[in-house]
Design a protein around this nucleic acid. Structure first.
Length: 201
DNA sequence: TGCCTGATTGCCT
DNA sequence: GGCAATCAGGCAA
């Protein structure tokens, strides 16, 4: 796939099967793409958070599998989409083996393609306001409940990267996760250092 | 059954 | 900085 001047290949399932914090780091710099009948929207992932299942009181899967979080226990490389605060959807990528219940929350994108479509969906003109938060990027790309359990390895929703992707260690900032009260001190948030499209510095 | 909380956002003061 | 919108899950009664 071609985005801007870059040629990108879709990440394979093996990528997602790895250690969750490693996947959260490695996703920085990759490109989330969704094709819909309205057109294609895509953005570079600049902020992620790891959620470590039964080890992590902040994870939806901490207390085991329910109808809501079932996708989190599915195949790695599938999406887990949940409805938050009765208002917004949040997009996660399932990691590790089936049945483990770990995932990476994608918190912010740098818009790359379909920007006018994003502006229309968001009702905002400012480029920085389109995807700088988990609820915002879901709205900008039109990610919703129909994508819960969707396979990112094939189909209209996917994550792509240059063949040789990966940021240098000094480009990755590590911080506490945003908006949680349990396990609040764990350093499981990762973002591209100095990038203006992260949800908060 | 009822109440509270939450991986959020945007508008109001 | 405060707070409403709006709903599903968890827990107490």
């Amino acid at each position: 796939m071609r985005i801007g001047s870059e040629t990108l290949v879709r990440l394979p399932r093996a990528f997602y099967a790895g250690d969750t914090t490693s996947v959260a780091r490695s996703l920085l710099g990759t490109v989330l793409v969704l094709e819909t009948s309205d057109g294609r929207t895509a953005g570079r992932i600049v902020e992620t958070e790891a959620y470590l299942g039964v080890l992590d009181a902040a994870a939806h899967s901490y207390r085991g599998r329910t109808a809501r979080n079932a996708a989190m226990f599915g195949l790695p490389g599938r999406a887990y989409v949940y409805f938050s605060y009765g208002v917004h959807y949040c997009f996660n990528v399932v990691t590790r083996e089936s049945g483990v219940g770990e995932a990476v929350l994608v918190r912010a994108l740098e818009p790359l393609e379909g920007i006018e479509l994003m502006r229309a969906r968001r009702g905002r003109a400012n480029l920085r306001d389109l995807c700088n938060g988990p609820g915002k990027l879901a709205q900008a790309l039109s990610i919703g409940p129909q994508h819960d359990g969707a396979d990112l390895v094939r189909g209209p929703l996917g994550i792509f990267a240059p063949r040789d992707h990966g940021l240098a260690e000094h480009e990755i900032a590590v911080a506490k996760r945003v908006g949680i009260t349990k396990a609040a001190d764990a350093l499981l948030r990762f973002h591209v250092r100095g990038n203006p499209f992260v949800s908060r510095p």
